[in-house]
Simulated scan of single mutants.
Amino acid sequence: MTDYVDGYCERVAPGLWGEPLNSLSNLAFLVAAVLVWRLAGGSRVGRLLAGLIGLIFVASSVFHLLATRWAAVADSGAILVFVLVYAGLFPRVFFGWRLWWLGPPAFLALTVSTALSGGGLYLSSLIGLAAFAAILAFKRDTAWTTFAVAGAVFALSLSLRTLDRDVCDYVPVGTHFLWHLLNGLVLYLVSRAAIRP
Rank of each mutant, 00 (worst) to 15 (best):
W97Y: 12
A152I: 14
A67P: 00
V36I: 15
L108I: 06
L123V: 13
P91Q: 09
W70T: 12
V83W: 15
A33Q: 06
L116E: 12
A137C: 09
F147C: 04
R44K: 14
F107P: 02
V81L: 15
R44M: 14
W100G: 04
A78W: 02
F95S: 11
L126F: 10
R92H: 11
I79P: 06
A115M: 11
I53Q: 02
R38A: 13
F94M: 04
V112W: 09
A59P: 00
S25Q: 06
L52S: 01
L55E: 06
A28N: 08
A78V: 07
S76M: 10
W101E: 07
L66M: 13
A130G: 13
T114H: 05
V153Q: 04
F94S: 03
V58D: 00
F57M: 00
F29L: 07
I56S: 01
V36P: 01
F94A: 02
V83M: 12
S159N: 08
A72S: 14
A148H: 01
L121E: 03
L27D: 00
V93W: 03
F154L: 10
L27G: 03
F57E: 01
H64T: 04
A106L: 15
I56C: 11
V83S: 09
T142S: 15
F82S: 10
A109M: 12
L110S: 04
F63N: 01
V45R: 08
H64A: 04
L126I: 09
F29P: 00
P91R: 10
L66I: 11
L80H: 09
A78K: 03
G46D: 12
A40T: 06
A109W: 10
V62P: 01
A130D: 05
S159A: 15
L65D: 03
L80I: 12
A134N: 05
A131C: 11
G77H: 11
L160N: 13
L156W: 07
A67S: 14
F82A: 10
V31F: 04
V153G: 01
S157V: 12
R69H: 13
V85Y: 06
V85E: 06
G46C: 14
G103L: 02
S60V: 00
W70M: 08
G51K: 05
L121F: 12
G42M: 07
S157D: 08
L27R: 03
L52Q: 14
G120W: 08
G118W: 14
A134T: 06
T145M: 13
L129G: 05
W101H: 10
V58M: 03
T111Q: 15
F154T: 02
